[in-house]
Design a protein around this nucleic acid. Structure first.
Lengths: 151, 151
DNA sequence: GTAATTTCTAAACCTAACTTTAGATCAAGG
DNA sequence: CCTTGATCTAAAGTTAGGTTTAGAAATTAC
């Protein structure tokens, strides 16, 4: 009953649509842990297809790789995750998404009242939201401020 | 009636909360166009405070600098923008934001039905969304795929 | 008039998330 | 056995959005 030798990285890449280089990168970031065969090549479990799919979806939701690694740590380490296991960690994803939607919705509402009137006069205006984690790269701006319209 | 000589870059930085280096960077990207004084230093109009505020807000909304440059090109070039001018270009921002919210909401709904059940079986699943511009950096993955759960 | 600030430019550096490259080794087919 | 294709590692390159650094010139303050 030849227990499968596992998937080669190329096969996994084909199944997930990820580049081979990306899969190796995820390993370097601690997101997947293949074993090595006699020749030193990476071998993956079939369950890793699901794991990589999850990573891709979580990225669409705006999570960073370290964040995804943390979420994945909620899966059992001693056995293949069941649908129930995946469901469990998906709850975290869902709330992350809820928060992002709430933030954007709030920004939109503020936009209607603030830029909408043409004043852009922050921080009187609610668009002044230093606590929003919409900040992506670099160090970014710290606050928004305009002055009274006078021309 | 000493018409003001314009704002120095440091003053503009103070008014907006942006770093001096960021303002120079925005100029390099074509987002602001100061003039130079006799000594070669940049001088800004008061209206540029508003312009930079707009840039910061648009960034919170997820627009890239080239996108923001395009939106700003909707402002009149021959005179100081009026509140009505700002309102006009804000409409584009608003629709951009609406789209992002709609995309995320759709993702959330799909999450409930797809990852929620633990199957992660894409592309049968609606989370397969190659057209979403949630793709941020690098070249990223092209599609999502899992296989039938069998363990 | 001199010292302390600002500002100037160009180039290098930074993070995230990868890709590309180079040269070497492994695995599979005939 | 030999060739072709897949994989390996390490290091450098890429994009976005900036920051940091260095040395020089302009401004401002006293």
């Amino acid at each position: 009953m030849a227990v499968s030798e596992g998937l080669a990285i190329g096969a996994l890449a084909e199944r997930t649509g990820l580049a081979v280089s990306a899969i190796r990168y995820y390993e370097a970031q601690g997101l997947v842990s293949p074993w090595r065969n006699a020749g030193g090549q990476r071998r993956y479990q079939r369950a890793d297809i699901r794991r990589l799919s999850f990573i891709m979806i979580a990225q669409q939701f705006g999570l960073t790789l370290p964040e995804i690694r943390d979420v994945l740590s909620g899966l059992p380490g001693n056995r293949t995750p069941t649908p129930a296991d995946w469901q469990k960690i998906s709850v975290g994803l869902r709330s992350h998404l809820d928060q992002r939607i709430a933030t954007l919705t709030r920004l939109r509402d503020n936009l209607d009242g603030c830029i909408g009137c043409g004043c852009l006069s922050l921080p009187k205006c609610a668009l002044y939201n230093p606590d929003d984690r919409a900040k992506s790269h670099g160090s970014g701006p710290r606050y928004l401020m305009g002055d009274a319209p006078e021309d």
